[in-house]
Amino acid sequence: MLGLLGKFGSTAAVLFGLVVGGAVAFAVLQLYDAFIDDPAVARVAREGFVAASEKLALQGQVEEMRRQFKLAEATAATDRARAEAANREADDAWKRYEAAVAADSGDDGCRVTDGDLEWLRQSRPAPHGSLP
């Protein structure tokens, strides 16, 4: 009978050793995973994420700068066209003024000479913001 109990006892001891060994191995692997493996994996994942997000942010900045540049170009072209139109209008108005002064033949006895017209042309103010 003792032989049978000895066999059961040794079998139970082996099974108990396997269960305890498995539990210890599981606990050790869990600790390794929590303190060594997971932080390393997370660090590598964050490194890739940081690089990708920085690249995406820089691409966004470049696209915004391009958009602002195109808008500034369009605005400058519009302003340039308006300035040229204003200069043409000022030239036309000045020529009409010169013609009106030259054509003045009022009864006041005052005559306009070529020297007066030349003085009038020289006294004309330079256009503001003139383009080269």
Rank of each mutant, 00 (worst) to 15 (best):
D108I: 01
I36A: 08
P39T: 13
G22N: 13
K95M: 07
S123Q: 09
K70Y: 04
E64H: 06
S53Q: 10
V101F: 07
A85R: 03
L4V: 05
E118L: 13
L58Y: 08
D92E: 14
L71M: 14
A126Q: 13
R67W: 09
V20I: 05
P132K: 12
L71C: 13
G48L: 06
A51H: 10
R96N: 08
P39A: 10
L131D: 00
V101Y: 01
A45R: 11
L15Y: 05
A81E: 06
K70M: 02
H128W: 12
P39L: 11
A13S: 12
F69P: 04
R66P: 03
L31N: 09
K7R: 10
A102W: 01
G6Y: 13
E64Y: 12
E98I: 00
F69I: 14
A42F: 08
P125V: 09
A76E: 02
S105D: 00
L2T: 07
A90Y: 00
D91H: 03
A77E: 04
R67L: 15
A76P: 01
F69K: 15
D37A: 13
A99E: 06
K70L: 07
E98W: 00
A34C: 08
A81R: 00
V14T: 06
G22F: 07
A100V: 04
G129Q: 10
P132F: 14
R46L: 07
G48C: 02
F49E: 14
L120A: 02
V44L: 05
G106P: 01
D116P: 01
R88E: 06
W94L: 04
R82C: 02
E98F: 01
F35I: 13
R121M: 05
V19K: 09
M65Q: 15
T11C: 04
R80E: 01
E89Q: 08
A77S: 05
Y32S: 05
V112N: 04
P39Q: 13
D104I: 05
G129S: 10
A42E: 10
K55W: 15
N87A: 03
A13P: 10
N87G: 03
A51N: 07
E47V: 11
Q59V: 05
V20K: 07
D37E: 13
L4N: 09
Q122K: 05
A83K: 02
T78E: 11
T113R: 00
L117T: 00
G6I: 15
L131W: 06
F49P: 05
E64C: 10
A12W: 11
E89C: 01
R46V: 10
M65R: 06
F69T: 10
R46Y: 11
A72W: 03
R67P: 01
A52E: 12
P39V: 12
L5K: 09
V44D: 11
V62P: 01
A34Q: 12
V44E: 09
A13Q: 11
K95I: 01
A74C: 14
F35M: 13
E73L: 09
P39K: 04
F49N: 01
L31K: 13
L117Y: 03
G129P: 03
S130W: 02
A27I: 03
L56E: 14
L131P: 06
E63W: 11
V44S: 11
A102V: 02
V14P: 00
D91M: 02
T113G: 00
R88D: 07
V112T: 03
D79M: 11
